[in-house]
Design a protein around this nucleic acid. Structure first.
Lengths: 170, 170
DNA sequence: TAAGATTGATCCGTCAATCTTC
DNA sequence: GAAGATTGACGGATCAATCTTA
């Protein structure tokens, strides 16, 4: 794992502020839920010998077509050097290729090669199914509700300014 | 960041199964929400020159007292080697010390030193407040609701067997 | 044989500095 | 000067192999 999960029990020594206490419990639940599902995702991806970042790039190019490296960076939230590195590796595997940008010679596109397209077309549905299995305990309705709440939570937290790794601060 | 976030828009090419589609949207929302809050947490910790893992160990020892390394491993969900490494670093900083286990000579305890106790006692409330700020958009009630749903989600996903990095499969 | 801890190799990604083009 | 991409050094964690004790 790449991330340590916060400890679950703060009840031993309750905090003065009940509001903080509720927030902490939510944070723990959020982190644990994320890690549980991420475990499924990572496990599935490892069988394809693919890192989460690599899969993220392939998936994005699959669903959106060729993209500038900077766009990829903002969308999957990796560092600038990280994108270069990911695209390098995918290119070495023959799954992705760089293309020059006609309107701006500083920029480059990344695009799927036929081999990359074939691969992601095959594994994406399997990966999606694995996620669905992980989440399978919840009804479709509560999945929708939860997704809505989480989206609100995420956007709120982002506006309050976390670290903002060069991401659009809209 | 240590983790790439799944891409948000699959609407361009809807999946056959609507159930899978709902699951995917939930997964994206979950990952984005987690990363947004984690950014706050990481940002805060970095000012203390402390990794999330190090903070996790200190926090746990603070709230639970001396713990076997194996227990720490299971609770913060890091690898076996990871715990050894974390405790090494904290010990080098003088914040934590190892203690022999009288009943099993294979095992060792980790415990806070006075300096470690002093440090975590000081920074934990600040960290908690930062998390509370990140989550501040939500009412206390909806924080509780969300936490409950997420706990259910996380436990469900875990039971369905993610990767289970040596963790108790209870 | 198995369980706990440790070591060393390796992997993935960040960060700071740099180069090019705008 | 600022924006896009790239490079190289580094950090944090995983993994497989090993050592010790049960």
């Amino acid at each position: 794992m790449s991330q340590s999960t916060p400890d679950a029990a703060h009840e031993a020594e309750p905090l003065g502020d009940p509001n903080t206490h509720a927030a902490l419990r939510l944070w723990v639940a959020l982190a644990r839920a994320f890690e549980s599902v991420a475990d499924h995702a990572r496990d599935d991806l490892r069988k394809q010998r693919m890192s989460p970042g690599e899969f993220g790039v392939l998936e994005m190019l699959y669903h959106r077509g060729p993209l500038l490296l900077g766009e990829i960076q903002r969308r999957i939230l990796v560092s600038s050097g990280g994108v270069t590195f990911l695209v390098d590796r995918l290119a070495a595997k023959g799954l992705v290729e760089r293309q020059d940008c006609p309107s701006d010679r500083r920029a480059r596109y990344a695009a799927l090669t036929p081999a990359g397209e074939k691969l992601i077309r095959r594994i994406f549905p399997l990966h999606a199914a694995r996620i669905a299995t992980a989440l399978g305990g919840l009804s479709e309705a509560s999945q929708r509700d939860l997704a809505r709440s989480l989206k609100e939570l995420g956007e709120g937290a982002q506006q309050r300014g976390g670290k903002s790794r060069g991401r659009k601060r809209r």
